[in-house]
């Protein structure tokens, strides 16, 4: 059986504030929200982005809209103007999180 990736169950949008990248991950339907919560954890996100995320990862549930706010600190190489990355505002990082495998429990 092939592993299902998060892009099959969630939409995303990401952006920056200083050296922080925030990623909103939204379940495509309410019944998929528990799977989303199980799949996106501090450990899974840290492991996915490796040394691109130097600070803490915080995950806030938004059960009312079946979404998670993922906050990654010291994650943008010093912030939009200082970073050496092409994606200066972390816009593409949201799609990166969709590589995480879906976990049912």
């Amino acid at each position: 059986m092939t592993m299902q990736a998060l892009d099959t169950i969630a939409y995303v949008r990401s952006g920056d504030k200083g050296d922080v990248i925030s990623i909103g991950v939204i379940a495509k339907s309410p019944d998929l929200y528990p799977k989303l919560v199980n799949s996106v954890t501090q450990d899974s996100v840290k492991a996915l982005f490796g040394d691109w995320v130097k600070g803490d990862v915080e995950i806030y549930p938004m059960e009312n809209i079946h979404a998670l706010a993922v906050i990654m600190r010291r994650a943008l190489g010093g912030g939009a103007t200082r970073t050496l990355r092409l994606d200066q505002t972390g816009k593409a990082m949201g799609n990166g999180i969709l590589r995480l495998p879906v976990k049912s429990n």
């Binding site: 939409y11 995303v12 949008r13 990401s14 952006g15 920056d16 504030k17 922080v20 925030s22 909103g24 991950v25 939204i26 915080e58 806030y60 549930p61 938004m62 059960e63 009312n64 809209i65 979404a67 706010a69 906050i71």
Partner: peptide
């Protein structure tokens, strides 16, 4: 929804100069 979650910190305390909004109770 996609824009509600854009560039925020803790969604229950969206901090602005005019007040603090809680995005976790709205419909």
């Amino acid at each position: 929804k996609e824009h509600l979650v854009y560039e925020i910190g803790n969604p229950s305390e969206y901090l602005m100069p005019d007040g603090v909004a809680d995005f976790t109770r709205l419909s």
